[in-house]
């Protein structure tokens, strides 16, 4: 793809142990353009580490190496702390799993949504507030004025996650990395939040890297799907072709989701799942 926002080639992440470094992500390559790319895998597949490595958020004992890691022409591997600060919040944004842990309970919602504007722009307080209110309305929150003035504790889980999305999008980043953005929410809310992320991605012309363990769910919202297992990419395919997935692993991930139709049957499981036992 020529207009890729993000290009990662041969990314390897390893952690030190008594028996030398242990690679947990093994030489993976991926690109994200103005589209939604889902990275799907079980826990321990390295999908979250990949997302964090792209954001430069891994602990310093992690060893990250790649032959290329470019975002909008910027080499992420040589970026210093100042460069990262400039990039995060204005160029790239991260949405995490649980709004309970990502929103500061001691500050009002408005202040947290505006924070990126405060750090990265020279807008006046009034302009900032206007932008924040617009954004809160844009993510589908009823009565933005009231949400703006409330504390996170007064919000339900779904509203909290919408606030997080608003805070991430307020500076119009080019790329959003969403690490299990809905797994702390009810099923129905999960669909609402993912629908919202999809429509905002299209509207703002952003790229979205959606990290999840639920293949059936994310595939409904993604353009392309990358399946990871034990640090390696097992399969990559357009979301529309998932029904014809080549590998048994992808097909198994697909069928693992229970439904009314699977009543009375055994769900498929991976015998050699590779998890330590």
């Amino acid at each position: 793809m020529t207009d890729a926002l993000l290009t990662v080639e041969d990314l390897t992440i390893s952690f030190p142990s008594d028996n030398g470094p242990v690679p947990v992500v093994k030489s993976i390559s991926l690109t994200v353009a103005r589209e939604i790319v889902a990275v799907v895998g079980e826990s321990g597949s390295g999908k979250s580490l990949t997302g964090r490595a792209i954001m430069g958020l891994l602990p310093c004992r992690a060893h990250v190496r790649a032959s290329r890691m470019l975002f909008e022409g910027i080499d992420l591997q040589t970026l210093g702390p100042a460069g990262w600060n400039g990039l995060r919040g204005s160029g790239m944004g991260l949405i995490l799993q649980d709004p309970k842990f990502s929103l500061n309970p001691a500050h009002r919602v408005g202040r947290q949504v505006e924070e990126a504007l405060l750090l990265h722009t020279k807008l006046s307080a009034r302009e900032r507030k206007q932008r924040a209110l617009d954004m809160l309305a844009r993510v589908g929150l009823p009565d933005p004025e009231r949400v703006y003035a409330s504390y996170p504790a007064a919000l339900s889980g779904g509203m909290g996650q919408r606030v997080m999305i608003a805070a991430m999008l307020i500076n119009r980043p080019m790329l959003i990395i969403a690490d299990e953005p809905t797994s702390a929410l009810d099923r129905g809310l999960q669909d609402q939040v993912l629908t919202l992320l999809r429509s905002l991605t299209e509207e703002f012309g952003m790229g979205l890297l959606l990290i999840s363990h639920d293949l059936q769910q994310v595939s409904r919202y993604a353009d392309r799907v990358i399946v990871m297992r034990q640090g390696e990419i097992v399969e990559r395919l357009p979301a529309s072709e998932l029904a014809q997935a080549q590998t048994a692993y992808t097909r198994g991930l697909w069928a693992a989701r229970p439904s009314f139709a699977t009543y009375g049957t055994r769900l498929p499981v991976f015998e050699d799942s590779g998890r330590p036992s």
Partner: peptide
């Protein structure tokens, strides 16, 4: 980030 926690180091080293 379960991948981080599965890497064990010996108690003495810890």
């Amino acid at each position: 980030m379960s991948a981080l926690t599965t890497l064990q180091i010996s108690p003495a080293r810890w």
